[in-house]
Design a protein around this nucleic acid. Sequence first.
DNA 1: TATGAATGAGAATTCATTCAT
DNA 2: AATGAATGAATTCTCATTCAT
Lengths: 229, 229, 229, 229
Amino acid sequence: MNTRKDSGGATTTPVRRRGATKRAASSGSASERRDHLVKLAAELFARKGFQATTVREIAEEAGILSGSLYHHFDSKETIVDEVLSTFLHDIVGRYRAVLEQGGEPRTILSEMVRIGFGTLEPHRAAITVMQNDWNYLRSLPGGRFDYLVKAEDEVERMWVEQIKRGQAVGQFRPDVDPKLTYRMIRDTIWVTVRWFRPGGRLDTAALAEHYVAVLFDGLATGERTTQRA
Amino acid sequence: MNTRKDSGGATTTPVRRRGATKRAASSGSASERRDHLVKLAAELFARKGFQATTVREIAEEAGILSGSLYHHFDSKETIVDEVLSTFLHDIVGRYRAVLEQGGEPRTILSEMVRIGFGTLEPHRAAITVMQNDWNYLRSLPGGRFDYLVKAEDEVERMWVEQIKRGQAVGQFRPDVDPKLTYRMIRDTIWVTVRWFRPGGRLDTAALAEHYVAVLFDGLATGERTTQRA
Amino acid sequence: MNTRKDSGGATTTPVRRRGATKRAASSGSASERRDHLVKLAAELFARKGFQATTVREIAEEAGILSGSLYHHFDSKETIVDEVLSTFLHDIVGRYRAVLEQGGEPRTILSEMVRIGFGTLEPHRAAITVMQNDWNYLRSLPGGRFDYLVKAEDEVERMWVEQIKRGQAVGQFRPDVDPKLTYRMIRDTIWVTVRWFRPGGRLDTAALAEHYVAVLFDGLATGERTTQRA
Amino acid sequence: MNTRKDSGGATTTPVRRRGATKRAASSGSASERRDHLVKLAAELFARKGFQATTVREIAEEAGILSGSLYHHFDSKETIVDEVLSTFLHDIVGRYRAVLEQGGEPRTILSEMVRIGFGTLEPHRAAITVMQNDWNYLRSLPGGRFDYLVKAEDEVERMWVEQIKRGQAVGQFRPDVDPKLTYRMIRDTIWVTVRWFRPGGRLDTAALAEHYVAVLFDGLATGERTTQRA
DNA sequence: TATGAATGAGAATTCATTCAT
DNA sequence: AATGAATGAATTCTCATTCAT
């Protein structure tokens, strides 16, 4: 039933492949208009939350009437779907690229942290929506957003594997729980979106280096003193 | 608009002191009933989000009709107000107590981390609501939830002060940004609420020790290698 | 999910048992109000069709706002459900009663024809809705109106059985198709609702006698001449 | 409002004479395309009802976009107008032809019954629409479908006249009401469209003979026993 | 305290139709 | 002939809230 309008392959594959949908050279306007609308909506979703953002507001932001939005999207959900799946596609792709290159666990992990912080600016809105509306979207009937969980699982596997490798080769302390550590790292990065504003004292690269430093070497000075189980 | 029903001193003072409002020693059913309702509501808010939770659902959970809820609360906002202010009152109190005791920065900071993780279970619902609905509640007109920001500021001052003291006495590396570091610690703790479930492999105390270890000594083994600005 | 509001057992049993739902003595007002609203809606559905009747119109007819209708009914569908199931319950009950009494096929069939015409006045609206909106309602997703088909099947079995018995004992001509004959009788009766208006030259009883005469003895005079297969 | 696009003479004369409107011998693609679209629409109208069928669905069925339909038709109403008037034109023509040939009332009436059943297959969609959406279409403002009533009246006059003639010459029992009898015959035939499916056990010719038999000689065997007023 | 009927202001969505290209 | 973006009015439904009983 969801034909052309809902291009979101998101429902069937964990991560959408966008762009390929449109006919050939994609003269632009058609797809561009849609992308523009998605971007506007993402900003609103991030600022006010998915539920608190009305379709009318999105339309107004775009200078059209609310009904007209339905020429481009099946539903409000389709829009947020596009916001999130675009983001997930991008980040999963980046993680995969780093892993394919190979290298020491510590190097790879540093790189993954940098990637995480690196998405903060281009995908600020999407990340915010994910943080705030994840629970609600997951609870929606129809399993439309199940792919969120799938993508998250894949990402978790990537991180956990590197942490375990690091422990195996003696680069990381053996007494920490890999999964738990991953979660804390992930959260610390994503949650930054709540207060990070571009143009401030620190950019995301600085944030990343700051975090990498504390993450690997800790806040304390001198000898490491905490006991290792 | 704020009649007797809305006991929330929250509007006037950063952190509400509950109970004192009620008519003296009337520990009676009235107040208890109210607290019970708040607890039920908090669970629903946490599970479904503040907006997605309807007044009817709260009432149903309590076995009454939605109209009857208005004998206890002025509005839906009053309920969430009570959920959040109760939590804030508790945690700010605990932080104050630790600070009043005094001690080394590193000890105090460890203790504050433990307090943070320690609120995860008793205040799981409130923390979840804060994480997910903070943005929305803040945006509500009337400034009703301004006290959230005030309380957060006070807490930030407490943490940052200890980090700075630690740097001053050489316990903490001098190259990290105190405010930034505070935020990352805070977020890492709170955000745990998203996936932490009591009864799992680790309890909140173990979580705290795990985090304290990584926070102070880092994930890496051997000599500390990151450069200090 | 459909709790108190949607009392329609229709979904689970072919024919609803109304009235029993309400608590004991059913002081009236609650159930009466609901019934009144159903009646108003039925009239509108009959006059304008289910789809063309707006919820607002129903509410206006009742002197309330459209939103208030949802205090009584889950949805527009629930209302029409109640209209139809009430009717089906009544007529199936009547048919069963006649069959339980027993008698000659011809006598029973005459009685069933009379019952059919007898429902024309009290259930005019419901029958009209069934005629006009049957197709649409059946096509609705969720199978909510599957009971319509079930009830129709039961009624068909009753009629066909009597026609077959009549043929077996030689009261009815053997060359007619029982099922086909039933359908034509049924349609002839129901479709009357399109033009029958109470208070006209003939009442439904007269209509019934008229039809019984033609049905059994035919329009022609003299010897029966059509060939019998 | 009625521009060139709306060829429906239906509005002015009881029964439209199609084809004549078109520019002479232009049997060409223009008119054919239009007829094709009408046929597609008729099927949808029949299956889902006029209101429930969206313009978009009709267009999709034809492989074009909804806006493109408006190159062929003024409005959705124009389409259904064409569906119905084509049908009415055909059947009224056939009735007239039989009457012009003359003959005994019983013979003519049999023939008219056969004509009725004979339209069931070629005009299945149109008849279905008439059955189901008659009420709604009649209620539309502007009197666009008044010709439906006019055509029906003409048909009624034809039938009633034959029944009366039959009674006058003693072929039909004198105690039945001609108008009432006509209506029942008419309804019985048309309503068949609800369940008749081509390719089943009986074709429409068999249906007609079956009905003629029961109509004239009745369902009962032996002597005619119903009393004649 | 509780009920339950009603309010009223929106919410998302639908859809026939228009029109520049 | 056809496209596709947009309109605008209407539709069903939601829900916090009120209030007489």
